[in-house]
């Protein structure tokens, strides 16, 4: 399993829990969960590229 898949799995489980405990309606929970998942992935990639250039 490569690093990106592991990061996706981490983002998915965290997004499931964050989405499930927050908001009031199921639709809002889904939207929030997807948003959290996307944020984990995007921020992870950005940080990864920043660290790539730091020796």
């Amino acid at each position: 399993m490569n690093h990106f898949l592991v990061m996706m799995l981490f983002a998915a489980v965290a997004a499931i829990v964050f989405g499930a405990i927050s908001k009031d309606t199921n639709r809002e929970r889904w939207v929030y969960g997807v948003k959290v998942f996307a944020e984990f992935i995007v921020i992870g990639l950005v940080l990864g590229w920043i660290l790539y250039f730091i020796p």
Partner: peptide, 16 residues
């Protein structure tokens, strides 16, 4: 639903 999603996420994380 919440039990499956949240409990499942915890168990999955633990075993992974």
């Amino acid at each position: 639903g919440r039990a499956a999603l949240m409990g499942g996420a915890v168990w999955l994380s633990f075993f992974v």
